Simulated assay, not measured.
Amino acid sequence: MDTHVAGHTLGMTRLVPASPEEVFAAWTQPDRIKAWFGGRSMTCPEASVDLRPGGLHRTVVRDADGTDYANPMLIEAVDAPGRLVLRIEEGSACPLPGAVGTLLFLPDPLGTRFEVRWDHPTEAMRRQHEEMGFERLWGETIDKLGAHAATGPAGCPFAAPPTPDHGWLHRLLGEWRFETECVMPGGDVQKASGVERVRSLGAYWVVGESEGSMPGGGQAKWIVTMGFDVAAQRFRGTFVGSMMPHMFVYDGALEADGRTLTLDTEGPAMDRPGMARFQDIVTMLGDDERTLISRVQGPDGSWTQIMSSRFQRIG
Rank of each mutant, 00 (worst) to 15 (best):
T238W: 08
A6F: 01
A18W: 03
V224N: 13
T13Y: 00
G38W: 02
V61D: 08
E181G: 10
M226F: 07
H129C: 04
T262A: 14
P53H: 11
L137F: 13
M247Q: 15
T262Q: 10
R290C: 00
P121K: 01
V5G: 08
F158S: 08
Y69T: 13
L263D: 01
G216E: 01
S200A: 14
V78S: 07
H4T: 15
A220W: 12
R127W: 10
K34Y: 05
W205R: 15
V116I: 14
E209K: 11
S213R: 09
E89L: 12
A220F: 08
A220E: 11
E135W: 03
A70N: 03
V23D: 01
G267W: 09
L110P: 06
G315R: 05
P299I: 08
S302I: 06
S41V: 01
A256H: 12
E181C: 06
F228E: 11
G216M: 04
D65C: 00
G139F: 00
G101C: 13
G101A: 14
E255M: 11
G82H: 12
Q297Y: 07
V240N: 02
D108H: 15
L173D: 08
V60M: 00
A6G: 10
G11I: 07
P95T: 01
Q128F: 13
R58W: 09
G91S: 09
D50N: 11
M132R: 05
L15P: 00
G286Q: 08
E209L: 05
D31K: 09
A232G: 06
E289D: 11
P53K: 05
L84Q: 08
A232N: 07
K34L: 00
